[in-house]
Write a protein that binds this DNA or RNA. Structure first.
Lengths: 147, 147
DNA sequence: GATGTTGTAACAATTATGGTTACGACCAGA
DNA sequence: TCTGGTCGTAACCATAATTGTTACAACATC
């Protein structure tokens, strides 16, 4: 029940895609197609285009349409943190409150929502601080070092 | 697509249940039934029993069976942190890697898993540090202050 | 025994996630 | 102007997680 096979892989895929584009451009190519990226990620090109559409709205990537179309970075890898990517994909909250509002007649039922929300906010802030520490340039450096 | 209506509420429910038991015992009662707790949480008693079974295995709660049965805390509220509760419910990872293994022929596909895993580990460590800062005693104090 | 509660299995309803097909929009180049 | 390749996005499916629900045996107190 707790194996979480289907947890969110969007941050992983998005970081992978951007890093791939960055390396590809660094090797002299203008744009990368969703097909190429999907081959590296091992998924369907539509999954890549869906994610890159969000990254594009967030100002991390740009697309060119028509023939010879594809994707390019909107900023250098060094100027994109994992927090930027995380925000771009609009993640839901890590922890949810009660599915159904608890009993407001009960002291605990009445007050625990706000009490936990304060903690959850701090947790998410810590998570964001941590993600902000790593840029995609750092990720690419690790990737190349591992060869 | 991103509304996340069904995120994990288990930490919320588990903290609620334990806090409720703690307050109930502090008011002079020996044990609390899953029925009573479920009324405060506004859910089904089985949901409470399922969660308390895990908390019991983790040494946070104890149950008594037979007539006049119910639940009690295994430790004082001040000795239970939200991290203890979090670990007890065996949460899955916050971020997942690729659903299907990426292309190992590609430099990025080959190296990005380990690179991101290192970051994700740091993020989860930060999350745990943050959860460890708050005890259920703190939560109860906030709850009572809010009345 | 009789009673009330736990512990747990089994199943349903709802939702998120990722994959897939399809197709119009778009644009460089012939 | 046409052709070909790619984006952008809608629509749908399969799978799995989550929560709620019913059911019932196990158990302990009276």
């Amino acid at each position: 029940m707790e194996s979480d096979v289907s947890a969110n892989s969007r941050l992983t895929i998005a970081a992978h895609a951007l890093t791939w584009i960055g390396l590809y451009q660094r090797r002299g190519h203008e744009v990368a197609t969703s097909e190429q990226i999907a081959t590296s990620v091992n998924t369907n090109p539509v999954v890549i285009r869906r994610l890159l559409a969000k990254l594009s709205k967030a100002g991390l990537a740009d697309s060119r349409r028509g023939a010879g179309a594809g994707w390019m970075l909107a900023r250098d890898l060094a100027a994109i943190t994992l927090l930027d990517v995380y925000q771009a994909i609009e993640p839901g909250p890590i922890f949810a409150l009660h599915p159904a509002a608890p009993n407001p007649e009960c002291v605990v039922g009445h007050g625990i929502g706000p009490a936990l929300t304060a903690v959850y906010d701090d947790v998410e802030a810590a998570l964001r601080r941590e993600l902000a520490k790593t840029t995609l340039e750092d990720v690419l450096r690790d990737v190349l070092k591992a060869v």
